[in-house]
Design a protein around this nucleic acid. Structure first.
Lengths: 154, 154
DNA sequence: GTAGATAGTTAGGCTTCCTAATATGTTGAA
DNA sequence: TTCAACATATTAGGAAGCCTAACTATCTAC
């Protein structure tokens, strides 16, 4: 008879959580951008290369959706990566859609990706190394829900 | 005699953790920026107002350090907030340093801050509301170490 | 075929952030 | 006291990243 209680637990103050999460994320992303600039390759670039490596032939829209970014923005990033010689636009697959571009890594791009990953002694990893094991566990555990926050809605 | 082992636990793959954290943070900050633009007040603005409210008389450098941002960047933000009529530069305190500016909220600024906080039914809180209680707990627990990542070194 | 959806690009603009240089004020040591 | 070194803040100029609107080319369905 009684309606289900809104939440079994005291419902965790969402606003407070948001107010803690927001500044941390903003500061962290500032740092990431700054560090990336020193290195010359942005975190996004590395990620895009990785994504293309994993699913070669992906299109601009696919990547834009995955990264939750506008198509023009993604297009510009890819243009830059192509100009760097790190990826190419594949001729359309047989029976293919002539509108689509099939993005694939060049050997140079694959090499660049490896180099980036190898030099992942970067700022973030260094900062992580300063945390205790239990802190790292907590962080790792919190990562899944964090990921869900930015999940693509199906 | 034996040297202390590098880590009692298998040392949590820092690189893997970083590779998970980075994209989540980047995506989230993109979302935050996009949403903030719709509303017209950036998350940083709100935060600055809050910081000034808590410690009136703070200087540009203080805030820049807290937010871990260059002084010119902070200066520009504050200029914008001042132009909006949300804060003023106090005349120097008695016996004060004439270089420093003492930042204080105007009544209008305090009001704006309240309005912003009240309308914290924003995107992030909404997204958080979609998580389960246990996910929220995990997220909340992970927040402390996340904060430590961007902590100011003393 | 032709209307509408889809893939991608171009054009133009905004925000946020940075470094380098400058103006002004403070302090300490010769 | 006077001047060099330092600190605070701003101005100037520029780069990165993102967006919307508008356009081209292609595809699908009627």
């Amino acid at each position: 008879m009684e309606p289900p209680p809104p939440a079994p637990q005291p419902p965790v103050d969402l606003a407070a959580l948001a107010d803690q999460l927001r500044p941390a994320v903003l500061k962290l992303s500032r740092h990431l951008r700054r560090e990336a600039q020193k290195v010359g390759v942005s975190a996004l670039d590395a990620q895009l290369l990785g994504m293309i490596k994993l699913s070669p032939g992906a299109g601009v829209s696919d990547l834009a959706d995955l990264e939750q970014m506008s198509r023009p923005s993604m297009s510009a990033h890819l243009k830059r990566l192509e100009a760097a010689g790190w990826l190419t636009r594949q001729a359309n697959a047989p029976g293919g859609d002539k509108r689509r571009v099939g993005l694939v890594l060049t050997p140079k791009g694959a090499q660049a990706l490896l180099a980036i990953k190898r030099s992942r002694n970067d700022w973030l990893a260094a900062r992580l190394a300063a945390l205790s094991a239990s802190e790292l566990c907590a962080l790792a555990a919190g990562l899944a829900p964090l990921g869900r926050l930015v999940e693509v809605k199906s």
